[in-house]
């Protein structure tokens, strides 16, 4: 009884946080089924305009090709980023020397400058490489970020060094230790890294807009930006587009969240 009561504040806080989190999403979902006029009047009950909104969306905008481009770019970015930054983070921590620590600190400076300031030199760089309008120009700058490296480095700190030593005594090569021993135990970290990289890549707007000048590889955030550009915005259609654009990141989280729940203790022993 008392134990239950003690849990009550926790449940209340969780319930409050969950409700507050979900409510605006409910509003968004309901709006996707309403007419533009109803959305503006903050109607909170589902309407019957979903199919009409969908109809206008697919006839006015290249929805499916945008979904496809966003998917290819976000998935490629995520896989590449997780592979190269996890090795780097492991390298920084497990083999850490003063020089490597300094390099890490130096690399961190790279994210501390607003993108608006470096965008034009970056554009010039890719233009010189002949990569304007290439999806690779969107993927490459995003596959290595100091934060991801730092995430893996920070997470590696709690990885027991004794295990590495033991593996070395067993005669395992360094890369094999990383792959066979470290990798499986760090699943929650990999899941977190994948979720955030995917989300960042999926919602990335400014750089893709600038480098993908022709609409050949138009992504979803660019589509959303175009919907709002006219004299008359169809808010029902906009909310539906937003809903569709939000779904994949949610799905990725649903898939990967099992990894967050897995303890590592079992894996180590």
């Amino acid at each position: 009884m008392t134990r239950r009561l003690r849990r009550l504040p926790g449940y209340l806080f969780l319930g409050f946080a969950a409700l507050a989190s979900v409510f605006p999403l409910y509003y968004m979902a309901v709006s996707a089924t309403n007419t533009s006029q109803d959305v503006l009047a903050s109607r909170l009950i589902p309407g019957s305009n979903l199919m009409a909104n969908f109809e206008s969306l697919v006839t006015q905008q290249p929805l499916w090709s945008s979904v496809w481009h966003s998917t290819v770019i976000a998935v490629s970015t995520t896989v590449l980023a997780v592979v190269i930054t996890s090795i780097a983070g492991y390298g920084f921590e497990v083999y850490h020397t003063r020089a490597k620590d300094r390099l890490m600190g130096f690399l961190l400076l790279a994210v501390m400058i607003p993108f608006a300031a470096t965008m034009i030199p970056l554009f010039r760089l890719f233009a010189d490489l002949g990569m304007v309008n290439s999806p690779l120009a969107v993927i490459l700058p995003a596959i290595s970020t100091p934060f991801l490296i730092l995430l893996f480095r920070q997470a590696s700190r709690s990885f027991p060094r004794e295990i590495i030593e033991a593996a070395r005594l067993d005669g395992l090569k360094e890369l094999a230790i990383f792959a066979r021993i470290y990798l499986p135990t760090m699943r929650p970290t990999f899941a977190a890294a994948a979720v955030i990289t995917f989300m960042t890549a999926w919602n990335n707007f400014l750089w893709p807009k600038v480098i993908l000048i022709s609409n050949e590889y138009q992504t979803l955030p660019i589509l959303l930006s175009n919907i709002r550009a006219g004299y008359v915005t169809d808010y029902g259609m906009l909310m539906l587009a937003v809903l569709i654009a939000s779904l994949p990141a949610m799905v990725i989280f649903l898939i990967l969240q099992r990894s967050f729940a897995e303890g590592i203790t079992g894996a180590i022993k």
Partner: peptide, 23 residues
């Protein structure tokens, strides 16, 4: 070995971020 692990990621950052930052 550590250096070889971290060089690919570092190179990408140096090229894509530091070069524009110097500019």
């Amino acid at each position: 070995t550590g250096w070889t692990f971290l060089i690919p990621a570092s190179l990408v950052i140096l090229l894509m971020s530091f070069w524009p930052m110097i500019q």
